[in-house]
Design a protein around this nucleic acid. Structure first.
Lengths: 194, 194
DNA sequence: GTCTATAGTTGGATAGAC
DNA sequence: GTCTATCCAACTATAGAC
């Protein structure tokens, strides 16, 4: 059929090299979903930016929702590295700060527009099975980040995450350079989970 | 036409008493928008819950977006009281804490599901003129809440707001009773803007 | 792997009667 | 103030050729 559900799979050329179309779709879809929100985003626009037609998308993904789910799988995967590392560390303030630093780096680099994407698609994520893996990772990270196992602790952990996301998304409202905002957010977040 | 754009206006009976249909639509629409998100919410479902037909909605509001804008106007109005009071107060930590307490009360009472609504509709709000008044109020409140005029200060102010919203919306992930969560959020928020 | 053409569905909005 | 009937636009998704 041409559809692959597993992470990292995809159509291959005769030389064994994976075609990059699936990844290009991935990238552009993330872009459009971030700008418009999942529901307002159309496959027409995604196809146009890719310079292909709508039906071509269906060769790589079996539905619009499948594209979204695929993005979520990638996001979940990106967090697994940090989670795995966190499991090997003692539950100290230093570890928590280090987790925040790693997350901040992800947001500054490969994830780029992730925060905007996540906020724009809060509604769509709620009833999406593919998003559950990602939400699960976030919950796990919150556990590692909380300074104490209480409501206070859980709130602080979630706020620390929110601080990082905020610096990434609210450039217009917070002012300052990207790095200045990221550093300030990291400061505030670290203070919270100390 | 039967359409009224001003806040608090609406069709009236011969005795001068405002009909409650407009307000009933208002309430149910807020409910459905919160659950589904604006884009996934259909006028069909709103009408069904109200036991009326879709066209009847158009007697009270001129479009789906008009209903959303109307809700945002109400939300903005609810914040004006707090803002007016804040203007009369000195910019002290005590004032900031008091603002948070007032907001917490609003979330516990009349606003109810506002937070869920706001999160579910982040995407829809971005390109909506009616939402700008509401966003403006939020920005004003942030100014009153910030402990210092710096990036750090602005982040802390926004996080304080986020804490209140979080306690309101994330009951499943935070645990505890409604009042316990609200109090904990207030504690953490107050500490942030001290 | 991508195309043209089209099926099938949904949902916002209007016309006009009562 | 609410109804029935209907229109229209937009979108997802599929069929089948190349």
């Amino acid at each position: 059929m041409g559809h692959d559900d597993g992470v990292g799979t995809g159509a291959r050329h005769h030389d064994g090299r994976r075609t990059d179309t699936r990844q290009r779709i991935h990238r552009i879809a993330l872009e459009v979903f971030s700008e418009r929100g999942y529901d307002r985003a159309t496959l027409r626009e995604i196809a146009e930016r890719l310079q292909i037609t709508r039906p071509a998308l269906y060769y790589h993904f079996k539905s619009k929702e499948d594209i979204l789910a695929s993005i979520h799988r990638d996001l979940a995967l990106s967090l697994d590295g940090i989670i795995a590392w966190a499991r090997t560390q003692p539950a100290t303030a230093a570890t928590r700060t280090q987790i925040l630093t790693e997350l901040s780096s992800l947001l500054a680099g490969p994830w780029g527009q992730f925060t905007q994407f996540a906020q724009a698609n809060e509604a769509a994520m709620r009833n999406l099975t593919g998003a559950s893996e990602f939400i699960e990772r976030t919950a796990t990270l919150t556990e590692f980040l909380r300074p104490s196992d209480s409501i206070h602790g859980r709130i602080k952990a979630r706020l620390a995450l929110a601080a990082l996301f905020m610096a990434d998304a609210r450039h217009d409202q917070l002012g300052g350079s990207d790095t200045a905002r990221a550093q300030a957010a990291l400061d505030v977040a670290a203070e919270l989970i100390r």
